[in-house]
Design a protein around this nucleic acid. Structure first.
Lengths: 196, 196
DNA sequence: CATGAAACCTAGGAGCCCTAGGAAAGAGGG
DNA sequence: CCCTCTTTCCTAGGGCTCCTAGGTTTCATG
């Protein structure tokens, strides 16, 4: 019987493709084994367990997403860069729903810390926001605003959360413009709540 | 052997509590059966299957969330209402992580349509946004912006996505203020993209 | 007290995750 | 060309999960 030639990378890549095609929750060791024409147990030489597999898919997706964003943003600035970032982000989430979902699983912070992709995204985002003249801690707050809105929009769109008739793409463009407005008119002041 | 006295409501309530305590993914028929001191099969008289159980938890959570938001927003307007809405939303997500997670599962659109809670949330949101002078389709776009940011923030916070040292609550207040700024300076114009 | 509708049961199939230990393929050196 | 050693893949099996089919027991109601 010839060997299939499994490696960790091939297994993870297949898992990522399966996630996009069938949903992250259907990425199972048995399904992957079936795909390779192999017994379940054989996969455990390449992957510690299911959790490990999912984390690897998440790291793969994070790297891909960062690359696409970096390419889209390169050479742009201000509102132009923001729109490019946003469109690249959403485009990836739409084309790779399973991979994108994987990026949202809880990952060991230590593992996140030494992931070059995540650091690079932070750099890109900060660089982009510099055009708006923000300084810490507003910079961090603005990063969190962008991440939240981008992620929230893609997550809601993916789960069919937007029921209204309004075109989802048109809303996205408007939302990105609204974010630009928020960054342009960034609220000043130290205390956020006047009362209380 | 006396009966435990199960009903659909009791099962769903227990499932919701378990979700908050152990995570939605650990809400399993067997775990619930153990909790009630009953065999797995016994639960299938009250709940069609696991999917059905999760949807019921989602609808329960949606109703609770709407109630809390409605109570918080009542009697307020403008920025005040926005902040109350936001804080009530995040507060619920933090206190009930499992229930909140359930609200994000994909649900039959027909079921969503005749859920009074969802319609009520839509009313509240629209009423709140009326203070900013928005009209359709900007109204829908603004609703999507708020939902996206609120959900994205809570989701990222729940999965430990915010690594920076900055206080998460302080960022939240700032993000809400930024949303207020975005609504106040809502971008005009029909076409969103100038180039292309 | 009888009866009918529930609640709850036993039994069992199928799928999944994962471990322990064994067999075989293929690479490398002699 | 064969021998050895690493690595891949296997068999065997335990445990947990969801879910169905069909039987029994409890309890309210007439």
């Amino acid at each position: 019987m010839p060997r299939v030639g499994l490696t960790t990378d091939r297994v993870v890549a297949a898992a990522a493709d399966l996630a996009d095609a069938a949903g992250l929750e259907n990425v199972t060791v048995s399904a992957l084994a079936r795909h390779f024409g192999v017994k379940d147990a054989s996969l455990y030489t390449h992957v510690r367990n299911l959790q490990d597999l999912r984390v690897r898919v998440a790291l793969l997706a994070g790297g891909e997403l960062t690359d696409e964003i970096a390419a889209a943003v390169a050479g742009r600035a201000g509102k132009d860069a923001l729109a490019a970032f946003a469109d690249a982000y959403r485009s990836y989430a739409l084309r790779h729903p399973g991979r994108y979902a994987a990026t949202q699983i809880r990952i060991d912070p230590a593992l996140v810390a030494d992931s070059p992709a995540l650091r690079r995204t932070a750099e890109i985002t900060h660089g982009m926001l510099r055009a708006y003249g923000l300084t810490e801690p507003d910079l961090t707050d603005a990063v969190r605003l962008l991440r939240s809105t981008f992620h929230g929009y893609c997550a809601l769109e993916a789960t069919g959360g937007f029921g209204a008739a309004r075109d989802v793409r048109a809303s996205w463009d408007k939302v990105v413009e609204a974010l630009h407005a928020a960054l342009t008119h960034w609220p000043a002041g130290q205390r956020a709540e006047p009362d209380r």
